[in-house]
């Protein structure tokens, strides 16, 4: 009786497997290809590679141009993620633990940068920054990136804070804790794993950002994504395969880390 249904289910399962497989291959193939190509010693990028080696990583390590860009990107991402983190934690406190009027709007406002098209946003930022003299400055770019990174702190933090009953804090206060201590020691402590995840996502957002930096960065601020962009535009330095492979590695770790952290906290 159930034989036709089983056959149908099998067909569905097979279709699902094929679709999933195709997507995975399409998404992962370029990544795998890039990693493969980065271990070639050919003078130019070509497929299939004629020779194998780690020459490109040696070139990368020896080149000031790439390392300067990498270092700038790391500093920029750390700065903007930190700004977003501090603002975000303050906003979370206001949204979830005060009776501030319009506090629900605050949450919407915090994530609005996710919704606005980047290019339109950049043009608007450009005119504001030019008036404030922030164009081409590290601080200006860090602030712009912080705006992009803020939604991750707010979204991840809010979801986690909703899981912390307000009674915990109130009880801590009756036990003699100050409001600040109850918030920091209990609620903030409980959402820390989630916030750490949000911080990593904020870091990554800034680290990979390639639109704002073109509008607001100027010649003095060449971040890693911009350096790659320029290098592809004006020729093809084979070192970019090594850089891409490195970024893939760093990103994978960055994505895996919050997962590992939340899993650790749940245990």
């Amino acid at each position: 009786m159930s034989a036709p249904r089983r056959a149908g289910e099998k067909l569905f399962a097979a279709c699902g497997a094929v679709i999933t497989g195709t997507i995975v291959v399409l998404v992962l193939a370029p990544v795998v290809l890039t990693v493969l190509l980065s271990f070639s010693n050919d003078a130019a990028i070509q497929f299939p590679p004629q020779s194998w080696g780690v020459q490109r990583y040696l070139d990368l390590a020896a080149s000031t141009k790439w390392l300067t860009a990498l270092w700038l990107s790391v500093r920029l991402a750390l700065t903007s993620a930190t700004i977003a983190f501090v603002l975000g934690v303050g906003a979370l406190l206001a949204i979830h633990r005060t009776r501030l009027p319009l506090r629900s709007w605050l949450e919407q406002a915090g994530i609005v940068s996710l919704l606005i098209p980047m290019s339109a946003y950049s043009v608007a930022m450009y005119s504001v920054f030019s008036q404030l003299g922030l164009l081409g400055s590290f601080l200006g770019l860090a602030l712009a990136h912080a705006v992009l990174a803020l939604p991750f702190i707010i979204l991840v933090g809010s979801a986690s804070m909703r899981g912390v009953p307000p009674d915990l804090e109130l009880t801590a206060i009756t036990l003699g804790a100050s409001r600040a201590r109850a918030w920091g020691g209990i609620t903030l402590r409980l959402v820390t794993p989630a916030l750490a995840g949000g911080f990593v996502m904020a870091f990554q957002t800034s680290f990979e950002e390639a639109v704002f930096v073109n509008f607001l960065g100027g010649p003095g601020l060449v971040t890693l994504p911009k350096a790659i962009f320029d290098s592809v535009q004006f020729g093809s330095d084979p070192v970019i395969t090594a850089i891409s492979a490195s970024i893939v590695l760093i990103s994978s770790v960055a994505v895996a880390l919050p997962l590992a952290l939340t899993r650790g906290a749940r245990r």
Binding site: D167, L170, A172, I173, T174, L175, S178, R189, L190
Partner: peptide, 20 residues
Amino acid sequence: LSPADREIGMVVQNYALFPH
């Protein structure tokens, strides 16, 4: 006085034990 200074003990529904 603030709740912290009233020297009260409080037990709420679901107990609000600190999970960590």
